Simulated assay, not measured.
Amino acid sequence: MQPTIETRAEQPYVSIRTQATLAEWGRVNALIGEVYGWITERDIAPAGALFYRYHSVTDDVLDVEVGVPLAAAVAGDDTVVAGSKPAGQYAVLLHRGHPDRIRETFAALDEWSAATGVGFDVTDGVWAGRFESYLSDPAEVPDPADWRTEVAYRVRD
C-alpha cells in the first residue's frame, strides 16, 4: 500500500469533540447520530463523508472529533462546534475492510513516512490534520468487511 499526496483546500465542518479510550469507543460512535441529527434539524446537507479527526493520543486516551463536512461554514452551539479541515498537502491511503483493522493502514502510513522522510504535521503530540473518513454508507454496504475508509494525514510544510 502506497499513499498518494493530495493538496486539499480548507473544508468547513461541524463536529462534537470528546476524549475516550478504545474501550469507550461505543460512546464515540454514538455521537454520529447526534451530529447528523443536528445538521438535519437545521436543514444542512453534508458535503462529504462522516469523519473522525484525531487531535492526540496520550496514555491510550484519544482526543477525537466526530464530524461532517459542509459546503459552507455555519455557527455551532454548546454541543456541536464549527471547525474546518486545514488546507495543505495530505498523505492519503484507502483502508478496505472492517474499521477494527484500520490500525494496519495507520501502520502503513507510518512506515511510508519513515521510508520516505515525509513528515506529518504533528507538534508536541497534537496533529494539525489527521482524518479518518468513512466513504461507505452502512445502509448501502451493510458488511463492514466491504467498507472503504480514507485515512489522510496532513504533511508538514
Rank of each mutant, 00 (worst) to 15 (best):
E10Y: 03
A91S: 02
G26E: 14
Y36W: 08
T18C: 13
R101L: 05
A45R: 14
E65V: 11
F131T: 09
F131L: 13
L31T: 03
Y153E: 03
A73H: 00
V80F: 09
A23V: 15
R148N: 11
Y13R: 12
A23Q: 15
T58D: 09
I5W: 02
H98Y: 01
P99F: 06
A71C: 05
F131Y: 15
Y54L: 13
D121E: 04
T123F: 08
G67W: 07
G33N: 04
D43S: 14
I5T: 04
R27S: 12
V80S: 12
Y134E: 00
V14E: 01
T58H: 15
P69G: 07
I5N: 03
P144L: 06
P144E: 01
H95D: 04
L94P: 07
E65K: 00
E41V: 03
W112Y: 04
A108M: 03
V118W: 06
H95Y: 03
Y153M: 02
G88D: 02
A45I: 06
V57H: 14
A87F: 03
Y36A: 04
A9T: 15
N29D: 15
G83S: 12
D146S: 09
V68D: 08
T116Q: 04
F51Y: 12
K85S: 05
E6A: 03
Q11R: 13
V66R: 00
D124C: 01
W127E: 09
V64G: 03
V122R: 04
G33V: 01
R53K: 14
D124I: 04
R8C: 10
A152L: 05
D100W: 10
R101G: 11
E24M: 11
V141N: 02
W112I: 06
A128S: 07
T40L: 12
T149H: 07
D78H: 09
G83D: 07
T18G: 08
S133W: 06
R156S: 13
R130W: 06
A75H: 10
T79F: 08
T4I: 11
V141H: 03
L50C: 11
M1P: 14
Y54E: 14
I102C: 05
A107D: 15
D59K: 04
V64L: 07
S15D: 07
D63Q: 07
T116G: 00
L135R: 02
L70E: 09
R101I: 00
P69R: 06
V61N: 13
D77L: 11
L22P: 12
R101K: 15
P142F: 01
W112P: 05
S56V: 06
R103G: 14
K85F: 05
R101W: 13
T21E: 01
F51R: 05
G129I: 02
A72T: 14
A23L: 15
E41L: 06
P99A: 01
E10W: 01
L94I: 13
P99Q: 08
G117V: 08
E140K: 12
Q2I: 07
V118A: 08
I5Y: 01
K85E: 15
K85G: 11
T116I: 04
D124L: 05
D43H: 14
H55I: 00
W147E: 02
Y153C: 10
V92W: 00
T7K: 11
A115D: 10
W25E: 12
V80K: 02
A114S: 14
K85P: 00
R17N: 12
T58R: 15
